[in-house]
């Protein structure tokens, strides 16, 4: 049996407002899933709900990792269980060096039972591994001495997220618009890096990946086994790589006319969001 991340009939509300309205999605390790859909359709909400963000309230449904319910786990426990998300807008932590941040994170994720105050991975071993990963990602070693995401450019943040994924070696990774803010060459490098990381997981099992994107470039080296279209808080259609191609060449008109109910909800959500701004 492959390891799976299974989402069943997931309903999520933010500040009492329903955003996800019954999402079904099953990801096996080794599979690449693309999640597409208009802005505000609920893609990032799905990512945040999987990671356990306290502001995203699951009102119905289940998220299971290998059959085990993870809804009662906090974000830290989910990370230690092997779930990772590369954020669209990662947070800055001034005063904390990337290397120190990652050494602690890597220690915790690799030793899920570690208690606070117990030893970290030996510095030398960690440094060696971090330097190797940074070389792979063509990152300057100076990067490790900078404060986490503090004053990073958009591109640097995204590369830092990929570096973290490489170090933490998750079973399942959600990449939330990891291509946004990157130029063409940077997206290509990101796409290659993700594919390489996905294949070099420990124990031979590859990562399961959920790629949230509007474009095709990130998928260049990560051909999706499945493409899902989200609209109005639901996955309305699932296909193969050809569906992703259709969406980024022809847009969402066909989807909208095929699923008028979800399209109407989508419009309502968009209007509410616009009014809130």
């Amino acid at each position: 049996m492959p390891e799976t991340l299974q989402i069943t009939n997931l309903h999520v509300a933010v500040e009492g407002k329903p955003i996800l309205r019954g999402v079904h999605l099953t990801i096996n390790r080794g599979e690449v899933h693309a999640l597409m859909g208009p802005n505000g359709s609920g893609k990032s909400t799905l990512g945040n709900a999987i990671m356990g963000h306290p502001n995203y309230e699951v009102t119905e449904g289940a998220i299971e990792l290998n059959g085990q319910d993870i809804l009662a786990m906090d974000a830290s426990e989910r990370a230690r269980a092997g779930i990772f998300m590369a954020f669209q807008r990662p947070m800055a932590i001034p005063g904390v060096k990337m290397a120190d941040f990652l050494r602690h994170a890597t220690t915790n994720v690799r030793n899920p039972q570690r208690k606070e105050g117990e030893e970290l991975i030996p510095m030398r071993q960690f440094r060696k591994e971090l330097t190797a990963k940074m070389e792979q990602l063509k990152m300057d070693v100076e990067f490790a001495r900078r404060y986490v995401n503090d004053g990073f450019s958009g591109g640097e943040m995204k590369r830092a997220e990929i570096l973290q994924m490489a170090m933490l070696r998750p079973k399942f990774a959600i990449l939330d618009e990891t291509d946004s803010g990157l130029d063409v060459d940077a997206v290509k490098l990101a796409s290659q890096s993700i594919a390489a990381i996905a294949q070099e997981q420990e124990g031979g099992a590859e990562m399961g990946i959920l790629i949230i994107t509007h474009h095709d470039k990130l998928l260049e080296y990560n051909t999706p086994d499945f493409t899902h279209v989200m609209m109005g808080g639901r996955i309305v259609e699932t296909g193969g790589v050809e569906l992703a191609r259709e969406l980024y060449t022809s847009g969402y008109d066909r989807i909208r006319s095929s699923y008028p109910e979800e399209a109407a909800v989508e419009d309502e959500m968009q209007q509410a969001a616009a009014a809130a701004v």
Partner: peptide, 25 residues
């Protein structure tokens, strides 16, 4: 910030402690 650090495996306590230490850095 706390949530972000927790998604990297930090416990809440460790995350807050790290953010405070960063503040003094």
């Amino acid at each position: 910030q706390v949530f972000y650090a927790m998604t990297r495996g930090y416990t809440r306590q460790e995350a807050v402690r790290m953010i405070v230490e960063g503040f003094f850095q």
